[in-house]
Computed example of a mutant assay.
Amino acid sequence: MDQVIEMVIRDLLLRFILGGSAVVLSYVTAQRLPWKAIGGIFATFPAVMVVAVMMVGWKKGSKEAAKNARGSVYGMIGGLICVMTLLFTLKTTQNWGISVILGLLMWLTSSLVLAHR
């Protein structure tokens, strides 16, 4: 039992380090680049998906990692819908808080709808 808990803690720590490092690197890159469009591209680096695929690959092999990667397509399409919603709402309301909340709700809703089709 202790060995299982130790493995779970080690996995979570590894995910935290890899995912967190990717997010920080993406943020720093986005802030340092003079071209805002390129900075925005780096700001959307799919760190969580990459780390999830890596962890599944290490634990269960390439076939399971491929299934995980294919499943991430729903979230990525949801991400596009989130960004489009956020941009539209931000332009019309000039309220970034409402825009972010609405964008995230649209991401979750559209991703779940796509996954259940």
Rank of each mutant, 00 (worst) to 15 (best):
M1K: 14
M1N: 12
M1I: 07
D2N: 14
D2T: 13
I5E: 15
I5N: 14
I5Y: 15
M7W: 12
M7H: 15
V8R: 05
I9K: 12
D11S: 14
L12R: 04
L14Y: 14
L14C: 12
R15W: 02
I17G: 05
L18C: 14
L18I: 06
G20T: 07
S21E: 03
S21T: 04
S21C: 09
A22Q: 05
A22N: 05
A22C: 12
V23Y: 05
V23G: 07
V24W: 08
L25G: 08
L25Q: 03
S26A: 15
S26V: 10
V28Q: 01
T29F: 07
A30Y: 01
Q31D: 01
Q31G: 00
L33A: 00
L33K: 00
P34T: 00
P34Q: 00
P34W: 00
K36R: 10
K36H: 07
K36A: 10
A37M: 02
A37D: 03
I38F: 12
I38P: 00
I41P: 03
F42H: 06
A43S: 12
P46I: 08
P46H: 08
P46M: 04
A47T: 11
A47Q: 03
V48T: 13
V50Q: 09
V50D: 09
V51W: 10
A52Q: 04
V53F: 01
M55Q: 08
M55R: 05
W58N: 13
G61Q: 13
G61L: 14
S62I: 10
S62Q: 13
S62V: 08
K63G: 09
K63H: 11
E64V: 08
E64W: 05
A65Q: 12
A66H: 11
A66C: 10
K67Q: 11
N68R: 14
N68V: 14
A69M: 13
A69F: 13
A69Q: 07
R70T: 08
R70V: 09
R70S: 09
S72N: 12
V73N: 00
M76F: 13
I77R: 03
C82S: 11
C82W: 06
T85P: 02
T85I: 06
F88W: 15
T89L: 09
T89Q: 06
T89A: 13
L90C: 02
T92C: 03
T93G: 02
T93W: 03
Q94H: 02
W96E: 00
V100S: 06
L102D: 07
G103H: 04
G103L: 04
L104E: 09
L104W: 12
L104N: 13
L105S: 13
L105G: 15
M106D: 06
M106E: 07
W107A: 08
L108G: 09
T109D: 01
T109K: 05
T109N: 09
T109F: 15
S111A: 11
L112I: 09
L112D: 01
L112P: 02
V113Y: 03
L114W: 03
A115W: 04
A115P: 01
H116R: 11
H116Y: 05
